[in-house]
Simulated assay, not measured.
Amino acid sequence: MTSTPAQAPIAIVSAMHAELAALLEAMPDEAPVRLAGRDFWCGHLGGQAVVAVLSGIGKVAAATTAALLLERFGARAVLFTGVAGGLAPGVAVGDVVVATELLQHDMDASPLFPRWEVPLYGRARFAADPALAGTLAAAAARALAEPHATLGAEAVAEFALHRPQVHRGLIVSGDRFVATQAESEALRQALPEALAVEMEGAAVAQVCHDFGTPFAALRTISDRADDSAHVDFQRFIDRVASHYSLAVMMAWLGMQR
């Protein structure tokens, strides 16, 4: 199953089917390989070999998926795409955050280790690959430059996405859906650099670190991780985030030629 370097696919991962739906529809020759209860869709996108997969929700599910991508499919790079809650001021619904670093906000082995530090790693933060994250941010800027073309006028009007922005910085992950003002404020106080919060990225970053494989993460902001986080969540993914993912990945793949 493992590919040679010249044939090695690029892995594209999302937690939920809706986040990846538009991308899967755009793969002309996808063929599923089922492992560990997951379908790994092997095929091509933008003329490049890719393997796309739904990790499932949460850090354990994401880590299992990442390990399979690297060990069984020999992925040469891993890109995570999906939605997140916005934390930092100015990170608005419809914006995109590209990670420079990722951290598990619910990791706490103190007093044996400092809060957030992953035991025996000597670090709390895992860096995204700088080159990969840089080109992904450039691709996102290109895709978001014309939201009407990417999403259609109706979706732009419905979610007021007239000037979406691309941000780069810290994304934090944890095994809970942050959906109250109190929780999001606590995260902002503890981790003021954090731009967005989700449930998988830091786990995948740690696995890619272990394998020495480039990793990058892109998250569309679906909500402000507060008491309104559940409002129109699924509709936003269907109408916006899924199409952002496809547009950004197509732009990024075009830059690799």
Rank of each mutant, 00 (worst) to 15 (best):
I12G: 03
I12M: 03
V13P: 04
V13N: 03
V13S: 00
V13D: 11
S14W: 01
A15Q: 05
A15V: 06
A15L: 04
H17R: 13
A18P: 14
A18F: 11
L20W: 04
A21Q: 03
A22R: 07
A22T: 05
A22M: 11
L23Y: 01
L24K: 02
E25M: 09
A26E: 07
A26T: 15
M27V: 13
M27F: 07
M27D: 09
P28D: 11
P28C: 06
P28G: 14
D29N: 08
D29C: 08
D29F: 04
E30D: 15
E30G: 15
A31I: 14
V33M: 14
V33Q: 13
V33K: 11
R34G: 12
R34L: 10
A36Y: 08
A36P: 10
R38K: 07
R38L: 05
R38I: 10
D39Q: 12
F40W: 10
W41R: 11
W41V: 13
W41H: 11
G43M: 00
G43N: 00
G43F: 02
G43Q: 00
H44P: 08
H44S: 12
L45K: 06
G46D: 02
G46N: 02
G47E: 06
G47Y: 04
G47S: 10
Q48H: 06
Q48M: 12
V50S: 03
V50L: 02
V50R: 01
V51G: 06
A52Q: 07
V53I: 04
V53M: 02
V53A: 01
L54C: 14
L54Q: 15
S55D: 01
S55F: 03
S55Q: 00
S55T: 14
G56Q: 06
G56F: 13
I57M: 09
G58D: 00
V60D: 01
V60Q: 09
A61E: 13
A62R: 05
A63C: 01
A63N: 05
A63S: 09
T64L: 13
